[in-house]
Simulated assay, not measured.
Amino acid sequence: MLKVNSIQCHYNQNNRPQSNNSGGEANSAGLAILNDISFHVNSGEICCLLGPSGCGKTTALRAIAGFQPISHGEIILNDRVLGNSEFQLDPEHRNIGMVFQDYALFPHLTVLDNILFGVRKRPAAEQQKIANDLLALIRLEDTKKRFPHELSGGQQQRVALARALAPNPTLLLLDEPFSNLDVDLRRHLNLEVRDILKAIGTSAILVTHDQEEAFAFGDHIGLIHEGRLQQWDTPFNLFHEPINRFVANFVGQGRLLPGMALDQHRVQTELGVIAGNRAYQWQPDTPLDILMRPDDIVLSDSDGILAEVIKKVFSGSTTLYTLRLPTGSLVESLFPSHHDYQLGEKLTVRAQVEHLIAFTIDE
């Protein structure tokens, strides 16, 4: 459905696309913001662009929407070229909906008029059906005569979603739409919006810096760092099969523990021998860094090693402990909060790794 093929974007004083003669690096004409970004969104699929602030994810969304010209590559929607280095289809002709971070509702229009803003030229009967269907979908039938300032933040965001869906776009883009909401409402609305999109079969791309939000929302996630797409994968694979150190460190919690390859299946570490669940390409005696997630470190009665509690973060039902091993290496472990260990206390722990993630020193 949507194909983004090797796109590059540059910024310069005039915000115009520039030719790229330096492999995606900054050149004299402009600064490269995106470098060879490629991914594919299937029909009915919900995807996320994830990454830290300033990584280029919003620029990628703007390029798809038509607000940011591309200097290399092409963007294709349902076999129709939306843009390349020589051609840029206007945003209003792309049949793409957009939901913004600040909702962007018209304050002088009612909920009903906001929703119908993009379909005002259609017959009255068709507008009425669109309004009824969308108000029912977002469960705000009783608010159609209210103005935006009379709604809660979550209600405003649902109205913004309905307005973007009214023209029946082929693709919906969401630019950090939940970031202005409190934590509980953000989580609830994240799932609610996903259910709405799945119910009507609309493809969507969400931009976010929140990995929990991306995991809950997306069928596929693209992790971007410094203008490059590091990995495009399912949430499960992104967490359990990170392609490099950045992905491993950004997605989920964990620490890297030094180790040495014994063979293609086993690694010797301070916490003992850790066995993988498949064959790896490491040669014996290859130095490695092993990613240890908090759930990989468990308490042990007798066959573990002593670790000192140097930090604890209470989060209600669980507490995240940072532990210092005898060599000074740090690992993290997540225990039920009724196990209340104190700073400086020594715990006997061992590794219980079901899935081995490791990187060579030069990776």
Rank of each mutant, 00 (worst) to 15 (best):
V309Y: 02
N84C: 03
R80G: 08
E141A: 12
H338S: 13
S71L: 09
P123D: 00
R186Q: 14
A131Y: 09
P148Y: 02
L347V: 05
R194P: 14
H209V: 07
K57R: 07
N168V: 13
A131M: 04
Q352Y: 10
L197P: 14
S22Q: 11
K57F: 05
V119S: 04
V99P: 01
I130C: 08
K3H: 06
L109K: 10
S179Q: 08
A160E: 10
N114H: 12
H225G: 07
T58H: 01
A216G: 09
A26M: 09
L105G: 07
S337W: 01
H149S: 10
A216M: 11
A136E: 13
D113H: 10
V41I: 15
H338M: 03
G56M: 12
Q281Y: 07
A199W: 02
M98D: 02
L116Q: 10
T269W: 01
Q342M: 04
G153V: 11
L256E: 06
E354I: 12
F39S: 08
S85E: 10
G227R: 02
L140W: 11
N12R: 01
S28R: 03
D295M: 13
H108C: 07
L356H: 00
D362P: 11
V273F: 06
F217P: 02
Q230V: 15
H209I: 03
F39P: 00
G222T: 06
L135N: 12
L112P: 00
D296T: 01
V273R: 11
L181H: 05
L134G: 05
C55R: 06
L134C: 06
L89Y: 01
F250Q: 02
N14A: 15
G24C: 09
R186G: 07
P294S: 10
I205L: 10
N180K: 13
L256G: 09
P235S: 03
V4W: 03
I46C: 14
I357A: 05
L299P: 01
M98R: 02
F87E: 00
D210H: 11
R120M: 09
I70R: 00
K312Q: 11
S6F: 01
G97P: 02
F106I: 09
S28L: 07
Q264M: 09
Y341H: 12
R278L: 05
F215Q: 15
A60S: 13
G23W: 12
D362A: 06
S38V: 08
A199S: 15
L89K: 12
Y341D: 06
G254P: 00
E212P: 00
L323K: 03
T143K: 14
L134E: 07
E270F: 11
S85K: 05
D233T: 05
A131F: 01
F106K: 04
I196H: 11
V111H: 06
A29D: 14
T348D: 08
